[in-house]
Nucleic acid binder design. Sequence first.
DNA 1: TGGGGATTT
Length: 709
Amino acid sequence: MCGEGDPTQVQMDGNIGMINWNNSHLQTQTDAIKQTTNNYLRRLAILSMADLPILQFEETIMKAVEENTVVVIIGETGSGKSTQLSQILHRRGYTKSGIVGVTQPRRVAAVSVARRVSQELGVRLGDEVGYAIRFEDRTSERTRIKYLTDGVLLRESLSNPELDEYSVVILDEAHERSLNTDILLGLMKRLVERRASNFKVLITSATLDGEKVSQFFSECPVVRVPGKLFPVEIVYSHERPVSYLESSLATALDIHMKEGEGDVLIFMTGQVRVFGPRPPNCRRFIVATNIAETSLTVDGVVYVIDSGYVKQRQYNPSTGMYSLDVVQISKVQAHQRAGRAGRTRPGKCYRLYPSAVYEDEFLDVTIPEIQRSSLAGSVLYLKSLDLPDIDILKFDFLDSPSPESLQDALKQLYLIDAIDENGLITRIGKTMAELPLEPSLSRTLMEANEHGCLSQALTVAAMLSAETTLLPGRSKNTEKKRKHDYLDLPDGSGWGDHIQLLQIYECWHQTNYDIDWCKDYQLQVRGMKFVKDVRRQLSQIMQKIAKGPLDVQISRRWKESQQDYHNLRRALCVGYANQLAERMVYHNGYRTLGFKPQVVQVHPSSVLKPDDEGKLPDYVVYQELIATSRPYLRTVCAVNIAWVTPILDKVNKININKLSGGIGRIEEHTEENMSDLPKTDNVVAAVPDDHESKIQAARERFLARKGKK
DNA sequence: TGGGGATTT
């Protein structure tokens, strides 16, 4: 919870005398000054706040921890669990035999909570208390309490599956059910059996589902710690509004006229730009998405307006398509939203839906991310752990993904050579897992390295990893007189968006990474810097894997050579074999291959160019298939049919039962029966229906024509 | 010619 980072919430520590870490640092005057400042901050913090609820439960918690390997702690907002649990364990000696690691789903939380704890203990950040997030490891040999993102802990467990250096792992904010935390939950379950004698796991959750987690960990104890929230009055609507926008506006104005002081936080599904007449005096109205449920804390909020909806990204494993849907929130989310009204004093939450809807229609908990995402990356990760006792299809998840989703992941991994036809991880797959990239990009890098275009592929991979959209939108009304227009940027030479991204970065490189150049072309500076960081990291990892220097330097002469980016595009084709589409015969629509076929369009923002006859390339690979107003291929690259043919052969050979480990999971076949199955087109993953077989026939005619050329 | 919630290695 963000609340534990508030400067006002600090422990009244009765055990200060036990903490004597800082004595050794008082060597120089500078250190002394810092120390004085730290002490001052600390005293200030201690004075400003009464004790946190969790400290009253110290004995209860410690008794549970001493008697059990796994303990679930349910602590509402403001209980102090994120900052205090690690310190309690430290006081009780658990940092003598190893590190106390605390995972967070978000980078900012890991950093801010670590900073907070180091202040409370009066030590320098990075010494006894540190944090580790991507690109930033602020820990040292002295570090005993380590905050880290769940993703970083997963990375660590790749090289050290037993997590030997940790005496305790605390999975914080488990109720958010982030993909990585869910995988860690499964791994912890295995680990506590293997390291029962010297390892403890604490799982903290803000809400309800403690019993479920307890059952998952063989009925481990659940300790409930009250939060420090003020009461929040819930006000339901009598009916669902026709327009949520109008309704929330009306409610907001109503609050403004009738209610006392305090800001208003409005949860909507997307960006809104309404609120015309500004109220005469100063009351803030904050319109937010679900970002305000977790990441963002706004002080001074007393009123919350909850639309009851959220925009959620979902993945359909049968079509490989993502969609962004407006869905009803869960009870847990509604609870979180309401809680935002009670942080500073008693508040009110206006729910724009009737209580019957809440009771009858809302799910108890949010559908975990693991059931809404493509799992290729996670499955590859689990396979690469190479734990003989872990079978991915039987992996013990708190909430299992659907068999379809797991099979989809296996198919994808097979098509890009990460696993073999028996579902066993290949040498290629093993290497891929070491790269902090989605499998398609990892595979692309490896292929590129074989064909002398690693440097280009590194750039493409880094550009695609950018957090935000780098390129400016193509709106016509922003014709500001700038030095340059984004239209002056390279256009991918007709080959598509990956190539354009490569060319843009190379241009930036030629300016010696000039920030003003980014601004001139309306490229997001922060995004471009991030790309540079990622590229450096990827280069290092690739060299480490290769155990020697590789050519990762950016060529300064791309303009001079008339490249068709042949090798790079081929590498992309190999890497994105699971995301391949074929153009329709008579128009520029595409049909996806390898999934249940979908007819899709190239996104209008693409720089892919048609030929003289107005036709787009026969085959493309795509970065993303997303259904918005229509299904679109986003970020595409033209590839050659010669590279595609072997992939299609592979698609046709997929035997999902073998991929799943030979044991039929859907049909109850015996293993012998499986191995008897002929490797013919009859074993295609998706049996074509009549419509599809027509498409198939048309495609064959098309291919035949192509072949004659 | 379209629209975009939030994360992370």
